[in-house]
Design a protein around this nucleic acid. Sequence first.
DNA 1: TCAAACTTTCAGAAATAATTGAAAATTAAA
DNA 2: TTTAATTTTCAATTATTTCTGAAAGTTTGA
Lengths: 165, 165
Amino acid sequence: MKLEEAQDKFIQGWGQLGASWGINRTMAQIQAVLLVSPEALCTDDIMERLQISRGNANMNIRELIAWGVVYKSFKPGDRKEYYYAEKDMWDLAKKVARERKKRELEPLNRILGELKTVEGNSNEVKEFKKVVKSADSMAKRADSMLELVGKLDENIFFKWMTKGK
Amino acid sequence: MKLEEAQDKFIQGWGQLGASWGINRTMAQIQAVLLVSPEALCTDDIMERLQISRGNANMNIRELIAWGVVYKSFKPGDRKEYYYAEKDMWDLAKKVARERKKRELEPLNRILGELKTVEGNSNEVKEFKKVVKSADSMAKRADSMLELVGKLDENIFFKWMTKGK
DNA sequence: TCAAACTTTCAGAAATAATTGAAAATTAAA
DNA sequence: TTTAATTTTCAATTATTTCTGAAAGTTTGA
């Protein structure tokens, strides 16, 4: 397979993965373009490679930077901003996990907290409280799991557990 | 807070969470309705509670069953199908993780496998191979992590690590 | 200060996804 | 069988998300 073709497949595949994770497809594709590029690229490079508009490119690049998976750089004697991707994929996964946790688990926790004040003693109320408590403990567990991933990342025992064919 | 109100908040919040996970909002809401209901419900109950059409209800119930998080049941002397939700939330999370793994990680792995056949020796090709390899190992790592979650679930050491305030 | 180079914004257009509702298919009791 | 109850399908509609492109905003160097 030729390089260009392989890169395109990677870009498409990565975009697809992003889409199914609820991340805008173009955003994932821009990240993929930066991942496969040895040097930092400017907005025009990205617009050209993906055939997208300036506005679209700009918005999604901002978003990637906000997620902490793409960085800016500057070239001396050039006014343009250049962008490059975090290439440590595990670090990437951790950052995405952290960002999602912030955006999704926290709002859920807030709601679940409020719901504990439900009044009454009927069967339905008891059932409901059980569900809320269960959701709450799941959220906490998911939360500490994500923490764990970050912390245990370098731990030799963890590496041993997760290594394998 | 009154029960009905609390249930509605839970249903909305759960739908929201589902949406940000790339799961159809209605699908998540149906699951929430079943979660807070002490008895199994039929299609009409769900249509009424969420004010949605029969087609919509049917499609999303099917999908929930396919994910393995909702089950059918039958009442004697009644032809209707009744549905109830898996209420063990941790089990739920595991099932969702497994399903997503199947739907998303596997396609990525297939593509990454193909991409190893890229030809050439240039700097760009080397860079590209590095990215592919890195993505591949991240995918494998995520994969074994999900495996681990399932296996360690009952493990006391793991519980100790993840327990917290 | 001005003007060129570049970035950001955002209203409207286009693309995508979800939903409806009624018809078709299926099921099971009589 | 037949028929009534129920589930499934799907073309058309509606809602949501994403994208465009041009105008407005910002920055930098002369």
